[in-house]
Amino acid sequence: MADLVTHIDPALYSQLLVFFAPSIDAEELARELGLAFPGLAVAGCSTAGEITPDGIATDTVVAMAMPRGSFRVVTDIIPDIRAMTVESGASAARRLRAALERICGNRAEGSGHRFGLILIDGMSYREEMCVSAVAMALDGIPIVGGSAGDGLRFGATTQLHDGHAYSNAAILVLVETNHPVEVFRTDNFSPTDHKLVVTRCDPERRIVHELNAEPAAQAYAAAVGVGPRELTPMRFAAHPVVVRIGGNYYCRSIQRVNPDGSLSFFCAIDDGVVLTVARPRDLVRSAEAELARLDQALGGLDLVIGFDCVLRRLDATRRRIRPRVEELYRRHNVVGFFTYGEQFGGMHLNQTFSGVAIGRPRTT
């Protein structure tokens, strides 16, 4: 906290984003931030690992402050998202957009660049409905975000908003800035010919009991060439399963094996879904290509707010390329957290690196 106080003058900033390890007491953190930065709006969530200016960490608080002169920011919270409907989620997003319009005033067309961030309880199983409702209501404002994490415990996550800690909630942040911005996503997998059809599942809890009419863990293990006892988060990271939607493939990552041999997923799943086993591509090369593209498109990167899947972190550790990932993120000023899932547009995704790239302000 002392380090944050040294570097942040609350009078100069409009918003503080905070991503913190689940080992940190969220209520105490909220109280201390309120005392340290009176009047400064705060939003954030717990993580499955933090992306800091010094590299990847797992027991820290990472904070970023948006300067008042070049960022106009409004935030809100959707409580109890398990009880949320499409209409209530859309209404919350419309109210927040109206609030942004009010503080921006009659700005000239093209004078500001806008984006939205969404931070959702990663154990709520409601990310799909929440992000689709919000994206629909924002009517063209691009949105990106991450599912709050709980390390690798998969117990309970925490969301932080203006002095209070919540669970089962989503935080919405809308931003207008003088900086050029672009939301993005990238992944590092390619489909194989191995197909697995969901033949029995519990969609509400994202649990698959059978694949190809066989016990789910047994069928998946056979497809990737290992024994059921070898199924770990590291193995799931190395052998993701994907679904094809509109000609593109999207991950439906496996969270864990349950005692009864079923598989819990990070994303929505249903009977009849065809899963394709995927093979990984070079994680560093794919992320480096996307960050280089963004750097060129925006005339230099000032900051990247990044949401990276926890399975990518585990895969980088297993392949011993974590130092290369850290060096790449430091070089491109990536700050953010590792997630239980990523949001991009109106979709909830897995095993991607998503975020918003903020370029250097352009002057005449």
Rank of each mutant, 00 (worst) to 15 (best):
V310G: 06
V224E: 06
A219W: 05
A217K: 10
M234W: 11
A289C: 10
F189K: 12
N212Q: 03
A289M: 13
V273N: 01
L294Y: 00
Q296W: 09
A278R: 06
N188D: 15
S286V: 11
Y250I: 05
D260K: 12
A223E: 04
P259G: 03
V224A: 04
A221S: 05
D308S: 10
S253Q: 04
V304F: 01
A213N: 15
E290Y: 02
T186R: 10
V257T: 15
A237P: 08
D270S: 11
E214C: 11
G261A: 10
R244K: 14
G227L: 13
C251W: 08
V198K: 00
A297L: 14
G246Y: 06
L303M: 11
R185A: 08
Y250S: 05
A316D: 05
A297D: 15
V208N: 02
G227Q: 14
G299Q: 08
D202K: 07
L263D: 07
A297F: 07
R200Q: 15
V257F: 01
N258I: 05
A223V: 03
Y220H: 02
K195S: 14
R235L: 14
G225M: 05
D295L: 03
A287R: 09
V181F: 03
E214Q: 12
G300F: 09
P259A: 11
H239V: 08
I245Y: 13
L283Q: 15
F266C: 06
P215D: 07
V277M: 08
A238T: 11
R244Y: 06
R256Q: 13
I305Y: 06
S262W: 08
I305P: 01
P240F: 07
A268I: 03
M234I: 10
D260P: 06
R244G: 11
K195L: 15
T199W: 05
L294E: 00
N212R: 11
D271I: 09
R206Q: 02
T192P: 02
A219D: 04
V198N: 00
V198M: 03
F265S: 00
P280R: 14
N248C: 13
G299L: 04
R235K: 14
S264Q: 14
V243H: 10
R200D: 15
V257D: 10
A237T: 06
V277W: 06
E182C: 08
R279A: 15
V273Q: 12
V241N: 01
F184D: 02
P191T: 04
N248L: 15
V310Y: 12
N188L: 00
E230R: 10
R279W: 04
F265M: 12
R313S: 03
F265R: 04
R279F: 09
V310F: 13
D187L: 10
R185S: 10
L211M: 06
G300K: 12
P228K: 01
E288G: 14
C251F: 09
A221T: 03
L263Y: 03
A222L: 11
L298G: 01
L196G: 01
I269G: 01
A213I: 01
V274T: 15
A237G: 15
T199D: 10
L303K: 13
P233C: 11
A292D: 05
D271F: 07
V208A: 00
Q218R: 13
V241I: 12
V197R: 12
D308P: 05
D308G: 08
C309R: 04
